[in-house]
């Protein structure tokens, strides 16, 4: 059975997997953008520095902790049952996944911001939200960008496997071929994924150096 693993069927993989690989990348792009931008306001509520109300702080903090405990593929399974098979479930699953990571990373960054500008804004008459928007947000934007690119990479990796539970992307093809034990078809797909992931990662490293 392992012999076929090392006898890849390249043409078959290019013909059948490239469309699904594109779908995988689209899922990752959409989910990381949505997840990170939903997490941006949430993490201000989940930080002691910008949210003095203890009850809402605890609620937001434990909400973020809670969604972080459920693994990405569990989300995908739940969403495929709830909204049906297909990439939409995958996007929802990865939105939860990236929201959880961004929420944790960003709220911890907000915890350690310089409180001086915040105070200055309030002293000159800004409301709490205005003060946060004008003096806390600019401080964390570089971190947000770096985390976003990191989460995008994670999402690319995670979206590859979503198809195993029917949530769209290239994993779907791997799953069907696995059932038929066609390891000669799986191995070229895995190599394709490897190249795509490495290429995207290099792009993201380049972008990070360019922006930051």
């Amino acid at each position: 059975m392992t012999d076929t693993l090392f006898d890849p069927k390249w043409e078959w993989a290019f013909e059948n997997a490239s469309q699904a690989l594109l779908e995988t990348i689209q899922i990752a792009i959409l989910a990381s953008i949505l997840g990170c931008f939903i997490a941006l306001p949430l993490s201000f509520y989940a930080s002691k520095a910008t949210n003095q109300t203890t009850t809402t702080y605890i609620i937001y903090k434990s909400f973020l902790n809670f969604i972080r405990t459920i693994p990405d593929l569990f989300w995908a399974m739940l969403f495929t049952v709830a909204v049906g098979l297909g990439p939409f479930a995958g996007v929802l699953a990865l939105v939860m996944f990236s929201m959880a990571i961004m929420g944790k990373l960003l709220s911890e960054t907000i915890d350690s911001i310089d409180l001086g500008p915040l105070e200055a804004a309030k002293a000159s008459g800004a409301k709490h939200n205005q003060a946060v928007f004008t003096s806390a947000l600019p401080q964390i934007l570089p971190n947000f960008t770096a985390y976003f690119l990191y989460i995008f990479e994670l999402c690319i990796r995670a979206s590859v496997i979503l198809g195993l539970v029917g949530a769209g992307g290239v994993g779907r093809i791997i799953e069907t071929q696995r059932i038929f034990l066609r390891f000669d078809r799986i191995s070229p797909i895995i190599v394709l994924i490897l190249f795509a992931v490495i290429a995207i990662e290099q792009f993201s490293v380049w972008l990070r150096r360019k922006i930051l």
Binding site: L78, V83, P87, V91
Partner: peptide
């Protein structure tokens, strides 16, 4: 995000009906 959403057949009514299904 628009390019990705169009490629994945995500329509507004699917988005709005999702919370109820969940």
């Amino acid at each position: 995000s628009i390019w990705s959403a169009s490629g994945l057949e995500i329509t507004p009514d699917r988005i709005f009906s999702a919370p109820g299904k969940i």
